[in-house]
């Protein structure tokens, strides 16, 4: 999963070192346009349905947080 996620983030061309970043949202590294683009990609790649209620900083602040969200939504499916 991590590989797919990294590929998605690389494809988005955001020039950020995602493996080390822990405050993607709180530090404003990902803006709202990036978030929506990322959500679209995640929904397609993992066949999940990320809703408004999931758009919390703690779900997108790091690679690990994003993976946890994807796993949680996959389990709920």
């Amino acid at each position: 999963m991590e590989k797919i996620l990294l590929a998605i983030l690389a494809e988005m061309n955001l020039a950020v070192d995602f493996s080390g970043e822990k405050n993607l949202i709180d530090d404003g590294i990902l803006d709202s346009f990036d978030i929506i683009a990322l959500v679209g990609e995640l929904n397609d790649a993992f066949d999940i349905d990320i809703g408004v209620e999931h758009l919390l900083p703690e779900n997108f602040n790091s690679l690990e947080a994003i993976m946890n969200l994807v796993k949680k939504l996959q389990a709920e499916r």
Partner: peptide, 11 residues
Amino acid sequence: MREYLFYPLSL
């Protein structure tokens, strides 16, 4: 606007 209009609209 982002929280209550942009995100809900986009999703």
